[in-house]
């Protein structure tokens, strides 16, 4: 149970996600125009890889997550998950939502079961599985609590357990810690790092916190605004486990500056400085971006 479903021989070679030139447009009725949420979005994610997508609000990063989840359909381009084209939600994927999306009339235990119920996967082992993942996210003793009785961080633990219990090969996380307070956020990041080290699925993690992305991810896709497109994909070479101390490593600060210069160099210039941005000290020079805008790198 510690490992996500064992990959079959055929899908072992397949990438977890393969997105090619994905474009998503919305027809806006009131404005009588078409909004391009994503343009030519291409990215590949290996099995078991942790990809963070960083970008300003409204840059379309959540749209991409919805496309991979099978909740939104692209107007152009192709998306494959585990080697199969996305036609809708599948049991090999699970989503963790920013605002938890827990059913307020269900207890922790019943909320964690929810995904399995919808996937019609309730059997004699369900109870043990539910217990196991509740324990894994550190909510032992709160099985019978309702969401309103839990703090924000604990609610997101329920959301995480609900996704993990379906044992997905790909976990989609849509700004999962954006709604919890800063201290809880740190704890949750450590927790998530520990859990994914144990379960080993591929993850797409949407965030607008640069530090969060560097702390957690194997690679970081930097997305710029309207239409959302990938500026650059960066490798995070910092050894794990990464702790609070890793944030003062030169590699960390260098990467942070690099991402910030990519974001603030946004041609549409729609980036407001985010709260956790610490301006570089006089000595360290901000690296100038070398790639041209809109050049998807892999």
């Amino acid at each position: 149970m510690e490992n996500a479903a064992e990959p079959t021989q055929a899908s072992r070679r397949a990438l977890a996600v393969e997105a090619h030139d994905v474009t998503v447009t919305y027809d806006r009725l009131r404005e009588k125009d078409t909004l391009i949420a994503l343009r030519d979005f291409s990215v590949e994610i290996e099995q078991g890889e942790f990809l963070a997508i960083v970008g300003p609000s409204g840059c379309g990063k959540s749209t991409f997550l919805n496309v991979v989840a099978g909740l939104t359909f692209p107007s152009a381009g192709t998306v494959e998950v585990m080697g199969k084209p996305v036609t809708g939600p599948e049991t090999d994927r699970a989503v963790v939502f920013q605002d938890y999306a827990l059913l307020p009339w269900r207890t922790t235990e019943q909320n964690v079961r929810f995904g399995l119920e919808l996937q019609r996967r309730i059997d004699s082992e369900t109870q043990d599985k539910v217990r196991h993942y509740i324990k894994m996210v550190g909510l032992e003793g709160f099985e019978r609590a309702y969401p309103r009785e839990l703090s924000g961080g604990m609610r997101q633990r329920v959301g995480l357990a609900r996704a993990l219990v379906t044992e997905p090969r790909l976990l989609l996380m849509d700004e999962p810690f954006a709604a919890v307070d800063a201290m809880t956020r740190e704890v949750m990041q450590d927790e998530l790092a520990r859990i994914v080290a144990a379960t080993g699925q591929a993850i797409i993690f949407i965030t607008h916190s640069v530090d969060e992305a560097i702390t957690l991810a194997d690679r970081i896709a930097v997305v710029t605004n309207r239409p959302g497109r990938i500026r650059e994909i960066l490798e995070v070479g910092i050894p794990r486990p990464r702790s609070r101390a890793s944030r003062s490593l030169p590699e960390f600060t260098e990467l942070r500056d690099r991402i910030w210069s990519l974001l603030s160099d946004d041609p549409t210039n729609a980036v407001a400085p985010l709260v956790d941005y610490v301006p570089p000290s006089e000595g360290t020079q901000v690296a100038e971006p070398t790639a041209g805008p809109g050049e998807p790198l892999r």
Binding site: G138, L139, E140, S151, M154
Partner: peptide, 20 residues
């Protein structure tokens, strides 16, 4: 993590009194 969430509205000890 050993059950120490940073903000905990209820203690594990009061669990039988959950709710109004």
């Amino acid at each position: 993590m050993s059950a120490t969430p940073t903000s905990t509205p209820l203690d594990a000890g009061t669990l039988d009194h959950i709710g109004p």
